[in-house]
Design a protein around this nucleic acid. Structure first.
Lengths: 205, 205
DNA sequence: GTCTATAGCAGGATAGAC
DNA sequence: GTCTATCCTGCTATAGAC
């Protein structure tokens, strides 16, 4: 079961990094949490930095799946269908996904270490927030092509939509750790309001 | 010149913390940069954590001044005046202020250390982003009272405005250190677009 | 009050037995 | 491949001279 150990170490290190940060987590803690020796950690990953890089980029892959998911849900919209309910549902999922405590913790971790690991921060940004924004832009462009939405600049529309939905909650969530997780009702209210504002203007800008 | 040393230490520590982060900055580096001995640092501030707290909250005070500034500029608007140009100017200043490299670095620092210093993160949030949002909400409520703006919920309007203006730039700025400072032209374009969207909907929501 | 020197300890990384 | 034991560096914080 030598392949399994790698997995165990990654899992333990991920949890510790997310909870304590990079520097505050020692390789000794990681080894202990994974129930292996330090040497095993080093023989698999070389050093602490490499382990960190692998973990962050591995977790970021989840976001790519989410972006694909969003793309699919916008691609499902066929002609002559009202987009409002689709956008409302999408906004709910989007906000809930980003406000997930693990996702917020990962953002904090990457942002906090951005000075030490600029390539990691850049790669994370490209694979996660930027990918979702691009998926939204594509979806909006498609809807515009179907005549369901009047959008001048799809990319800008995607930005507007995203930050109307996420803005305040995400900003708040970055600073307040202890379970700022919004309730379903809050998510619904925020998402609906964002879609109202978005649709009220998307037809004009 | 014993009062001056405190100032010198704070200045040196601020610069190092912003550039390298809390953990990566040693008290030895701080002492060296301030051209004093470690002992002097410890005798003034007790320990590294206290120094950190004092610095973050001190710098955050700048934001309070900025919030007051925004309040004033919205309070200047008298009846029968067009609010659009006022909002455009305000949006420009707001975006430029938040995208200042020092401000971004402080945000990164506080967010990255939020797990270790939750009270610092909470205090920073209250004094900086939240204070500006509250000032905007007050201003919008006042404009609504004058009949210059139709706003249902001033607080929500403030959130919408703020993140239409800042959203994408701020998110991007959190992850990309090297001079993501937007040009004046970019700031202007983003600010104008945000105000267009905002005014296009503020009259209906 | 300020410096030099140092205690005391923890962290990353490696050596060597099995 | 895995463990135990260890090296060495660098950190926070303090003691003691001036």
């Amino acid at each position: 079961m030598t392949a399994g150990k790698r997995e165990v170490i990654v899992r333990a290190a991920t949890e510790l990094f997310l909870r304590q940060g990079y520097q505050a987590t020692s390789t000794e803690q990681i080894a202990a949490a994974a129930a292996v020796s330090k040497q095993t950690v080093y023989s698999r990953f070389g050093d602490k930095e490499s382990l960190f890089r692998e973990i962050v980029l591995g977790v970021a892959a989840t976001a790519e799946a989410f972006a694909a998911d969003l793309t699919a849900s916008l691609a499902d919209v066929s002609e002559a269908r009202d987009v409002a309910p689709v956008l409302r549902a999408l906004a709910r999922r989007y906000l809930a996904a980003v406000m997930d405590p693990q996702v917020l913790a990962l953002r904090r971790l990457v942002i906090g270490e951005a000075a030490r690991f600029p390539e990691v921060a850049a790669a994370y940004y490209e694979r996660s927030p930027a990918m979702v924004l691009a998926a939204l832009a594509d979806g909006f462009a498609r809807l515009a092509g179907l005549g369901l939405l009047t959008v001048d600049d799809p990319r800008r529309a995607a930005d507007d939509f995203a930050f109307l939905v996420l803005g305040r909650s995400l900003d708040h969530g970055m600073f307040h750790l202890p379970a700022t997780t919004p309730s379903d009702a809050q998510i619904g209210a925020t998402a609906d309001h964002a879609v109202d504002v978005f649709l009220g203007c998307a037809a004009r800008m």
